[in-house]
Design a protein around this nucleic acid. Structure first.
Length: 878
RNA sequence: GCGCGUAUAACUCAGUUGGUCAGAGUGCCUCCCUUACAAGGAGGAAGUCGGAGGUUCGAAUCCUUCUACGCGCACCA
């Protein structure tokens, strides 16, 4: 059993793991495929199996946890399917690095041997990020955890490949691919990052064969001249008409290459003559096809020069080759000039080195027919993006989609299910099981792009292609939460996979998270080392605080400027919540917890007010969450808890708790607990640990754990407007008195009396709340004055048309009071004249809606009343 | 070149279909260890809503345009 009182300090350290373990034991995270409850499903964007948790993961997975916990509390069949992906390139390069430390190179090992090392590696590091997600509090159904290289999942991938191949949507082609010389593999267009680089433009002289002259070509990559097979000129370029039919004698290699004419060449760029290297440049590749040129591959798979170049250059790296070529051309006086030139260079996202365009056999997926239904799914609104503006980016990419190079020259991954006949390479076999006579066949060595496995994630986490109960219950999923940086890699392709293989969209809503940056606006990255370690933060601030603060600082659709300082907001808030709860627990009778029934009509005004505020907050909170505005929802529950509940309600409740009236005290206790339980409910998805802990001190005997407690939903409510208005007046009185006292620097232990004028209608309200005013505004006597006499030597303030005097014999600083009143007069003057202007405008009276005009009139009247009173008081003062 | 986003207090952000005297948190200033919380309480100062036009009775909000910053795509000999 719980101790009835909360510790004096919130200590999250062992409490978090204790609750997580408890929830697991109770199997609260488990979804049930047989349940008749409405399913709510999320598939996790699978992190890299050997990765570690980053703040990006914290952001992303907290959001998913919020959605899934809320759904669970709403009584839905909440299913969050976790897992990891195998991340071909990243993992393979890590394994290679590990092996090379042991003096083993990949080429020394057979495929099977390398895979063994890779699986060892995966077994060793594969569980880390999963454990970390548990520390974060993620309520995933861990029994459903998947890995993209599981047997079932692999089967799904093979199935998809064979299907698409049979339909003619997968084909093999020899063309230029983006080649990453670091991982020695092809990569897709999406994995190429273009960076602006300051380079040079070399103007090379190419001698015309059999003549004295030369043409000058400009290039950013002089080393590729070794693979040139033509020089091209625009046919409309009058300057070079005379070169028709002539040949170039290519320096250094001494190859005779033709001069060709092609519209592609830009007359105005450089000299108008361009060297053509069909095997190493996409545009030149096309020209090579058009003009039937020679395709000379001059590179090895690591981008060093191969045997197709003169011996001197063979085996040089591309960087050394460039230097040597420039030197050699220069010594032959074949460099016309060199200019500085900024151009963008494609880098391999994973390898971090410039890519090469490399001629090779690769497997491609035909995309245009796959794209059509996916495009339709979003434009029809069946799938909604949040924020919506990503639709444009999505559409643009989809409409210009190019075929996808899906083969990778790697080992760690899904080996392509294609076999080549040993006697006839043209003869190929494509199936999941392989040929019946394997001895006569050789399997394709390449593996599939990792995204060509994770694009099936939304349904391959089940036993697809079998359509079992799980698939039927949990597909389509509800919401995908992911970063906008993988909108093409993953989101778009998952939509294509869903519509293609199941003829149904994979999810209804896609929430794109913010990008985390440091407080200077730099993107968090490993290479910059500016990314904080989440676990240090969890320890320092508490996991709930990190979760809550991260949500609070992440506006929808905008980047987040993250700083530890901003985590203090969450930590302080958790501390506030803890202490408020502690205080309430200290002051309630245990019996209250089991009988929270209450007659609303009999409540005090502050009780009616706080319950109304809770209703409003609940309503707004739900609306914000429906809208995926996690920051707004966080903010509103924060404000309600701190400002309304702690600063006003609990302060007032003190007068009830410590007052003589036991009935009133009991009512206050019930409302205090009711409201607190509301706060805990709404806050639980954001801060699961602390709320469950506090809940355990406030639950009745029949109540369930908070994680499965019913969600708060306010359908309709009819507030007692009269009571709320009275309470606002009361707040106004208290705030006004506090302001005066503070400005006069009156210490809290020195109580003062107040005189209230022009408040005939409010006498009963004020009388009923006398104790509250006295306690919160540090007032001893409240005097009503209905005549025209004003107390001497008083400060004055006007609120809600009530005039309040605070006689402060000997304490008043008349200078301060006078300048304060003058300032207020100035403000009023400004607003009154603006308001008068508005109301004297006939068009405003005629065209504006009635209630706006009426409101404006009321406002002006109130301001004039206040103006006159302030003016009188000022006169009186001087 | 095409597209997207952002610009409101010193900082980080709210501000709904145009209509409360433009808000919050942090920071800053003043006072206070008052029966949960100094990770706290009370109060205060602080904004030409990026610039310029326009629509409107009325614009932070809608339109045009410019500027600055960020991002994506395409081209790049």
């Amino acid at each position: 059993m719980k101790q009835p009182q909360l510790d004096s300090k919130y200590n999250w350290d062992n409490l978090e793991s204790r609750w997580y373990k408890y929830w697991l034991e109770k199997k609260y995270f488990q979804a049930d495929e047989d349940s008749s409850k409405e399913p709510y499903t999320i598939v996790i964007p699978p992190p890299n199996v050997t990765g570690k948790l980053t703040m990006g993961h914290v952001l992303n997975n907290t959001i998913q946890d919020i959605l899934i916990r809320k759904a669970r509390m709403e009584g839905k069949n909440a299913c969050w399917i976790p897992g990891t992906d195998h991340a071909s390139i990243a993992t393979e390069s890590k394994v290679e690095a590990m092996l090379s430390e042991k003096g083993i190179s990949k080429s020394m090992l057979s495929r099977e041997e390398f895979l063994e090392h890779a699986w060892d590696w995966k077994d060793k590091y594969g569980g880390i990020i999963i454990k970390q997600l548990k520390t974060l509090g993620c309520s995933c159904d861990w029994d459903r955890e998947r890995f993209t290289m599981d047997q079932d999942y692999t089967n799904a991938i093979m199935h998809a490949f064979v299907d698409l191949y049979k339909e003619g949507l997968i084909y093999k082609g020899k063309r230029l691919v983006n080649w990453c010389p670091a991982s020695k593999s092809a990569i897709s267009d999406e994995e190429v990052i273009h960076k602006e680089k300051n380079g040079k433009l070399w103007y090379l002289r190419y001698p015309i064969s059999g003549e004295d002259g030369y043409v000058v070509v400009a290039t950013t990559r002089p080393e590729t001249m070794l693979g040139d097979s033509a020089v091209a000129i625009n046919p409309k370029d009058k300057r070079y008409k005379h070169l028709a039919g002539k040949k170039i004698s290519l320096p250094i290699v001494n190859r005779k290459i033709p001069i060709i004419f092609d519209d592609f060449v830009n007359i105005d760029f450089g000299t108008g003559c361009v060297k053509v290297t069909p095997a190493h440049d996409p545009n030149d590749f096309d020209m090579g096809n058009r003009h039937n040129l020679e395709f000379i591959n001059i590179m090895n798979d690591d981008a060093s020069l191969n045997h197709n170049v003169p011996e001197k250059y063979q085996k040089l790296t591309r960087e050394d080759a460039r230097k040597t070529i420039v030197e050699d051309m220069s010594s032959k006086d074949l460099i016309d000039k060199i200019e500085d030139y900024a151009n963008s260079v494609g880098y391999s996202e994973r390898g971090g080195v410039p890519i090469e365009y490399y001629l090779s056999d690769q497997w491609y997926m035909k995309m245009d027919t796959l794209a059509q239904p996916a495009l339709e799914a979003v434009s029809s609104g069946k799938i909604k993006f949040h924020p919506e503006h990503w639709v444009k980016t999505y559409n643009h990419w989809m409409k210009n989609i190019k075929d996808w190079c899906i083969s990778r020259q790697l080992v760690w991954g899904h080996q392509i299910p294609v076999w080549y006949h040993k006697d006839d390479v043209e003869k190929i076999h494509v199936s999941i099981k392989g040929p019946a006579d394997p001895e006569n066949w050789k399997r394709e060595k390449d593996v599939l792009d990792t995204w060509a496995s994770s694009w099936l994630w939304s349904f391959a986490v089940h036993s697809w292609p079998d359509k079992d109960k799980n698939l039927k219950t949990f597909y389509p999923t509800n919401t995908l939460v992911t970063g906008p940086d993988i909108i093409f890699f993953w989101v778009a392709r998952m939509i294509m996979a869903g519509t293609k293989f199941l003829n149904e969209i994979p999810f209804k809503d896609v929430y794109f998270t913010s990008i985390l940056r440091d407080k200077d606006g730099k993107k968090f990255s490993k290479s910059l080392g500016n990314s904080p370690d989440p676990f240090t933060l969890f320890k320092e601030y508490g996991t709930d605080a990190v979760r809550f603060s991260t949500m609070l600082m992440s506006p929808q659709g905008l980047d987040v400027l993250f700083s530890n300082e901003r985590l203090e907001i969450g930590r302080n808030f958790m501390n506030k919540l803890w202490n408020a709860s502690r205080f309430v627990r200290m002051n309630i009778d245990d019996t209250v917890l089991n009988s929270l029934e209450i007659n609303i009509d009999e409540l005090e005004i502050e009780e009616k007010w706080i319950l109304n505020q809770l209703n409003k907050t609940t309503d707004d909170f739900n609306k914000y969450l429906d809208d995926f505005k996690f920051n707004e929802a966080a903010k509103i529950i924060y404000e309600f808890t701190w400002n309304d509940y702690c600063d006003w309600f609990i302060e007032i409740a003190k007068t009830r708790f410590y007052g003589d009236d036991t009935e009133k005290s009991k009512k206050a206790q019930i409302v205090a607990v009711k409201t607190l339980r509301g706060i805990l409910t709404l806050l639980h998805p954001y801060a699961p640990f602390i709320t469950e802990e506090i809940w355990s001190y406030f639950r009745g005997e029949d109540d369930v754990d908070l994680i499965v407690a019913p969600w708060l939903n306010i359908k309709t409510y009819t507030p007692d407007l009269e009571a709320i208005k009275s309470f606002d007046t009361l707040k106004g009185i208290i705030s006004s008195v506090r302001m005066i006292r503070s400005q006069m620097n009156i210490p809290p232990n020195k109580h003062s009396s107040i005189v209230i004028r022009k408040a005939e209608k409010l006498h009963s309200v004020i009388n009923n709340s006398k104790a509250i005013i006295q306690s919160l505004a540090k007032v001893d006597k409240i005097i009503f004055s209905d005549d025209n006499n004003r107390p001497d030597k008083s400060a004055t303030v006007i609120t809600n048309n009530i005039e309040i005097f605070i006689p402060l014999e000997g304490l008043i600083d008349f200078e301060v009071e006078s300048s304060r009143l003058k300032k207020r007069l100035g403000e009023l003057e400004k607003h009154v004249s603006a308001s008068k202007n508005k109301l004297s405008n006939d068009n405003f009276i005629k065209k504006a809606p009635e209630e706006v005009v009426a409101h404006e009139k009321q406002k002006l009247d109130d301001m004039i009343v206040e103006y006159n009173l302030v003016e009188q008081n000022l006169d009186f003062l001087t």
